[in-house]
Design a protein around this nucleic acid. Structure first.
Length: 592
RNA sequence: GACCCGGUAGCUCAGCUGGAUAGAGCAACAGUUUUCUAAACUGUCGGUCACUGGUUCGAAUCCAGUCCGGGUCACCA
């Protein structure tokens, strides 16, 4: 039983005994005591005065007194208005620290045998990954780590938008101007290589547009009139007709893209157990639409289009099948969802997709629920906001700053520069030094992105480099390295062997309390689908430790028991920092 | 027009299942190292929690309305 439960249940039991009333555990508010007051945990008794029929002060006084008497872990208490501040005994906290240290799996929950499929990344194959994909991948990966820690059985999948007019554009431009060049022959990373041909396509169509009189103002509409666009359309038709040459070119170019993506995935640590390709699913979904018609939850309009009426749910009518009988975007998503259900029979299906598609996923879930698919209740759209520059949305034509690979290499370069400036790599081999730059640079980037709540947009100013001081990844990494230095010098094996301690210092106590909150944090992050919970937790832990480090001598402690205790506390902080950072996909160095 | 999401210090963000005097980092300024890693620590400065009203013993937090910013409402994906 957790401390929280213990205190709440004791409170309920006392109220039952004193007033004969049942107090639901949820109605007891229990918080960590604010710094400016004495105590570890605070019970807010205002809501309980209805039962006690006494003043807040009297109620708190009574409850405090009884808790001290009966719980065995409350050392003292004080009452300020309706706030009952409880100080637990040092013995409780020391025991708690031992308990945590001895539990190797602290912070991971027992397997619940619930299957989760988590889709993330979802790139188009006609252009390289950009900063939005970076946020997506970091969120997706971290979320899967958090859910695993919470006991779920997670399978990560990716979906490639590998077909359609966009890749056809790259193909046409390459055919026209490529001269059989390759990523190898040009030394350009595969996804960038193909992306460059996409850019070339747009340049050419712009040129061609100059020769077209009375072109519409709308750029997309105008482009459709250009010869090169028409070639792309023909290309797409040929692809759909399985023309051998076209398919071969498509495969070749997508192959280059996948090679390129793979490098970026490796750098960021993204991985997938299964890949889905839109080219294999874009025709699917007609069965499921037919099923809906038979169940009378979808309707066929006079013009032949099939729709689902979501007006009772506050949404609109949505077309699920075109009047010519072909699929739309949502059609294949319905089918893909069904397919995944058959593949995995999962409890939850999480889609990590930008918030532009909030509406789409509402429709998807509702449509499946209307079909009577129970498993659709487990669909969750992990929606995240865009990454923007201070002047607004990153446009692809702003190129450089929004490109994922450029962003990564920039942050690695800064990490190297700063590390060298600080003279941190004395005694490192070149390999070790390079590993360190990577650890720190990626740590800075990942933390920068993950510390922000997913539904809030991130403002990223490419003019100012990502920070390495303060509330950042490197700060936490540094704290870990610092702890490791202590442990190397401390050389204490019997970590839990301290006894006969004088009373705990405030910061020592706060540190143990904070460590004790780790499992709650993991649980909350999983419940809320929010890695920023972990990010903020781990920062405050590191901050607290640094305060402790400055205030208390560790290896030079006055007594051997104090030294052992402080080393043990340091060790456990280091272990927890590492575990928490791992949930964010961030490595933590031994030295830096 | 309808719906969704945001608006907290100069900047970037916590806090939002209602609780005490709203917290961090950055920036600025002033300090801390003959002692365990100064990517650290301590202090100063900085707030009409967008606005108005409501609910409540108590509102940054809940409700209603207004304003600002973004998004969506395709037989595009």
């Amino acid at each position: 039983m957790t401390l929280e439960q213990t205190l709440k249940q004791s409170t309920a039991a006392i109220f039952k005994e004193e007033f004969g009333a049942d107090v639901p555990l949820d109605s007891v508010t229990l918080n960590i005591t604010k710094k400016e007051h004495e105590g570890d945990y605070t019970i807010v008794v205002f809501s309980l005065t209805k039962i006690s029929k006494q003043s807040p002060e009297q109620t708190a006084e009574l409850l405090g007194n009884k808790l001290k008497e009966k719980s065995g872990i409350v050392a003292k208490y004080n009452v300020i208005k309706g706030f009952l501040n409880l100080s637990l005994t040092d013995a409780y906290w020391l025991n708690r620290l031992k308990e945590i240290s001895e539990n190797k799996a602290y912070g991971t929950f027992a397997a619940n045998h619930k299957k989760v499929v988590l889709e993330y990344c979802g790139p188009n194959t006609n252009k390289p990954l950009h900063i939005g994909h970076v946020r997506n991948m970091l969120l997706g990966f971290s979320m899967s780590e958090i859910l695993k820690a919470a006991g779920y059985d997670v399978t990560k999948v990716n979906i490639y938008n590998d077909r359609g007019i966009n890749i056809s554009k790259s193909m046409v431009a390459y055919l026209r101007y490529g001269n059989n060049s390759t990523p190898q022959s040009t030394g350009i990373k595969g996804d960038h290589f193909v992306g460059d041909w996409y850019v070339k396509f747009n340049e050419v169509s712009k040129e061609e547009l100059k020769n077209i009189p009375n072109a519409p103002a709308d750029h997309d509409e105008a482009q459709k009139l250009t010869p090169i666009f028409k070639e792309a359309q023909e290309m797409l038709l040929k692809w759909e007709a399985h023309d051998a040459e076209t398919v071969a070119l498509w495969k070749k170019m997508n192959g280059w893209v996948y090679e390129g993506f793979k490098q970026t995935f490796n750098l960021l640590g993204a991985d997938f157990q299964k890949d889905y390709f839109e080219s294999e699913t874009y025709l699917l979904g007609k069965d499921i639409v037919e099923e809906g018609l038979q169940k009378n939850v979808f309707k066929k309009r006079p013009d032949g289009a099939v729709i689902v009426d979501l007006t009772p749910d506050g949404l609109d009518e949505k077309v699920l099948l075109r009047s010519d009988g072909t699929s739309v975007y949502i059609t294949q998503d319905l089918a893909t969802a069904q397919l995944r259900h058959e593949d995995f029979n999962m409890e939850k299906m999480i889609y990590v997709v930008a918030n532009e598609q909030d509406y789409h996923f509402k429709v998807l879930k509702l449509a499946l629920q209307k079909l009577g698919k129970k498993w659709a209740d487990g669909i969750y759209h992990l929606s995240y906001a865009l990454v923007e520059s201070p002047t607004g949305r990153f446009k692809s034509r702003e190129g450089k700053t929004a490109d994922a690979d450029d962003l990564i290499s920039e942050v690695l370069r800064i990490a190297e520069e700063k590390t060298k400036e600080l003279g941190k790599i004395e005694g490192f081999t070149e390999v070790e030094a390079n590993t360190l730059y990577k650890t720190i640079g990626l740590g800075a980037l990942k933390y920068f992105v993950l510390r922000v709540n997913p539904y809030k947009k991130i403002i990223f100013n490419p003019e100012e480099s990502i920070d390495f001081h303060g509330h950042t990844g490197p700060f936490i990494q540094y704290t870990h390295a610092r702890i490791k230095a202590i442990l190397r010098k401390g050389a204490i094996t019997d970590l839990a062997g301290f006894k006969n301690l004088p009373s705990l210092g405030d910061v020592e106590r706060e540190l143990i309390i904070h460590l004790s909150e780790y499992e709650n944090t993991v649980y909350a992050a999983a419940e809320k689908y929010d890695p920023s919970e972990i990010a903020n937790y781990v920062y405050s832990l590191a901050k607290l430790y640094n305060k402790f480090y400055h205030e208390f001598p560790i290896l030079n402690a006055a007594t051997e028991d104090e030294k052992k205790f402080r080393v043990a506390l340091s060790n456990e902080t280091g272990v927890t920092l590492k575990k928490a950072m791992k949930l964010l996909g961030i490595e933590v160095p031994e030295k830096m």
